[in-house]
Write a protein that binds this DNA or RNA. Structure first.
Lengths: 293, 293
DNA sequence: GAGTGGTCTAGACCACTGT
DNA sequence: CAGTGGTCTAGACCACTCC
């Protein structure tokens, strides 16, 4: 851990590995599958292997590199972990579009959402939270929502401070851009059923997309939020998350457990939001009190 | 993405995979290396393969499971990506201690650090930020610090809003518990040299551990912080990060780019803090303004 | 020197995708 | 159907660790 002027580079490329390689060279001391991986990475980044196009097949690569197919597969596994290619059974291996990291400003977002509750509906409908994040309009976005009633298991009960078995409204939703396949995040939200049953619009997915977000929905049943606590962790994706978010098995997800407290200090919503780790940045701002204040 | 009553489980175990497996069964439709991986996972979680002990060697596993060594290695690769085992060249593969996730409350931490600046030194010295996080005392902790002067590259210059080539003080540090090998995080911090040169204590690692943290250090040269912005992302570890933080290549790190602004709205510190993804939770709190205020 | 994990080969069969 | 990636085998040599 001595020489690291390039720490910052790691944030941008997600990778920083040795010098350039112009072929699989037996004089190089690194394993040959890694040399091949880095050569292919260079060809992708130079644009020679363009985004969306098929890579040479494994047998072709084995022939052209002089390596066995096993070694070629090791190289491709490396590229997949780097998020550079996507393998599809029976079809081929494709160069991924270079992923632009989407920055989500959570701290500002929540206050913005709260302020918006006081606006009239026409105004709210114009732009929602996702549109705020992405700069896209509602016509570019495709919503998925799924509502159900469940009973609190031990973990949820503890998180809400309610008895096990308490009815909860469970909402699963994600939003995709119409021009891209994979959603930007997947969200699993839980609300105590008793809190929201006063407004029938909250109980069914038929009314989605609801203009104004969860804070507005809660305001219709008399709930004002005081603070939101978010616990961020990185973990491997579940198989279905990998599919939904279009990430390789080796790429982590950012998992945010969001807990909302109302002004009476009750937990009124718990949401698990899952982001693809290779294209998401979460931004938090901590405002500090003045010493002389 | 239909049936997900177990979303929450994913947060705790980092893994949730099919039912239990009591052997590598050819009737099972899953690949046999995965069956073996899950069988071994069950044996680890049951305690049969205790933490810290060596796994059966690859050849032993090949013999006992009736699979080839290649398939056994695939299974072990899976276990490594799950963070359950650590392979050491020439020695063996060892069961990892089950990792307790450490929760780091960033939002509260920074205000706490700021408040502490106003305390006297004896008080400050009693507990530092790391001790605050971990509950350990200074005697249990081992500090590493390394200072150097560097010139701002393009990225750093842009982040600071200063010309390329501006001298920066670069500080690399990490803290380990004396009882554990791997540090909880690694930190790479940059300060404009001109800002801190007024206090020679800030320019050398000899004075570490400095009681009071960066905010106190900055206060000695007349700087008061206004806010801290943190951008969180998940990415694969660099090879040396994997070694330092004791994680497998397949496990992601949480990378936090922390930017500190002073009350004159200058960027006064930029720090990249890297956490092992398999045992870190970052907690952020967003306090919302009252509607009636 | 014996044992370990890391790399590598030259095959094979499979499920899946296109035409 | 031919071609693709996914799985699997039965070997081999290497660097490394420990005795």
């Amino acid at each position: 851990m001595s020489d690291r002027h390039d720490r910052s580079t790691a944030r941008q490329t997600s990778q920083r590995l040795g010098g350039s390689v112009s072929g699989v060279n037996s004089r190089d001391w690194r394993p040959r599958y890694l040399q091949l991986a880095e050569e292919l990475r260079a060809r992708i980044e130079s644009g020679e292997l363009a985004r969306g196009t098929a890579m040479p097949s494994e047998t072709e690569l084995a022939d052209s590199s002089g390596l066995s197919r096993t070694s070629v597969r090791n190289a491709i596994r490396q590229l997949r972990e780097w998020g550079l290619v996507r393998a599809e059974q029976g079809r081929g291996t494709y160069v991924r579009a270079p992923r632009q990291r989407i920055r989500r400003r959570n701290t500002e977002r929540y206050q913005w959402e709260k302020d918006r509750v006081l606006l009239d509906e026409a105004e709210r409908r114009r732009t929602g939270g996702t549109e705020h994040d992405t700069g896209l309009t509602v016509d570019d976005l495709k919503f998925h929502a799924e509502y159900s009633e469940v009973k609190a298991d031990e973990e949820m009960a503890a998180a809400f401070g309610l008895p096990v078995g308490t009815p909860l409204l469970r909402r699963v939703y994600w939003t995709s851009s119409r021009h891209e396949t994979a959603p930007l995040s997947a969200s699993y939200s839980y609300l105590p059923y008793d809190l929201v049953k006063g407004n029938k619009h909250l109980l069914s997915a038929d009314y989605e997309p609801w203009p104004g977000g969860t804070q507005h929905q809660l305001s219709t049943v008399g709930i004002e939020l005081d603070r939101i606590e978010e616990v961020v962790q990185a973990r491997p994706p579940l198989p279905d998350e990998a599919e939904l978010l279009d990430i390789e098995a080796g790429v982590a997800v950012l998992d945010v457990r969001k807990t909302s407290y109302d002004i009476r200090d009750r937990v009124v919503e718990i949401a698990d939001v899952v982001f693809p780790g290779d294209r998401t940045e979460l931004c938090f701002t901590t405002k500090l009190k003045r010493w002389n204040a």
